[in-house]
Design a protein around this nucleic acid. Structure first.
Length: 195
DNA sequence: CAAGAGATCATCT
DNA sequence: GATGATCTCTTGA
């Protein structure tokens, strides 16, 4: 069952937590890739100093200000892309960063794109998963209620969730300590980056 | 295993 | 002109 727009309209930390265990599906001429979402982060609004939206509307972050359920993709460090899903209501900039996936389907495609067969390196990290799923700026602003990229409810049990501090946001003052990073406890595909 | 450096560019000041 | 919501490789213990 493809997630509908109302799923993405809930409060961002809640959406981030509930995305864990669900499947990210990407259709592409190369074939379809599917991964279980095992790690997310919430960027909760204009007051969140870690969020791109904290300095107001710009050309880059405009999608975050739009309606829920759209992809916000950007380039970090000149090399890697990061995939976010916009949450909450139009005009309120918030999003969930997808940080790590467990490869489920289309693993050969991911291995080719990532140039490794190491299962744990295919999609455990925001930049890695974008490479494995062929996500770049061309997908910025696409609707996750469409057919190219979307999230499916896995219909599985609830997973044990850990809430922790977000990664790579040391510049964010008091906001760096907020428990807005969520991951499945003990899962091998959670990114190992420092916290 | 940990720490450090380098890669590279769209975006914003 | 500066700066990253990162990754990989190298070095050295």
């Amino acid at each position: 069952m493809k997630l509908k727009r109302d799923f993405y309209e809930q409060p961002t930390p809640e959406a981030a937590r509930r995305l864990l265990g669900k499947f990210l599906v990407r259709h592409h001429p190369d074939g379809t890739t599917v991964g279980r979402i095992v790690e997310t982060e919430a960027y909760v609004g204009p007051q969140d100093k870690a969020s791109h939206a904290s300095r107001g509307l710009t050309a880059r972050n405009a999608v975050m200000f739009g309606p829920a359920g759209y992809a916000y993709v950007y380039l970090v460090y000149g090399f890697h892309y990061c995939l976010n899903i916009v949450t909450e209501k139009r005009g309120y900039p918030a999003a969930v960063l997808i940080r790590a996936l467990e490869p489920m389907e289309g693993i050969e495609i991911m291995e080719r794109r990532r140039r490794t067969t190491d299962y744990r390196k295919l999609a455990s990290g925001p930049g890695r998963l974008c490479q494995a799923f062929a996500i770049d700026l061309a997908l910025n602003g696409i609707d996750l209620c469409g057919d190219v990229l979307y999230v499916e409810d896995s219909g599985e049990r609830a997973w044990p969730v850990v809430a922790a501090t977000r990664i790579g946001v040391d510049y964010a003052g008091a906001w760096r300590n907020k428990p807005f990073r969520f991951y499945i406890r003990g899962h091998a595909c959670v990114s190992r980056a420092r916290s």
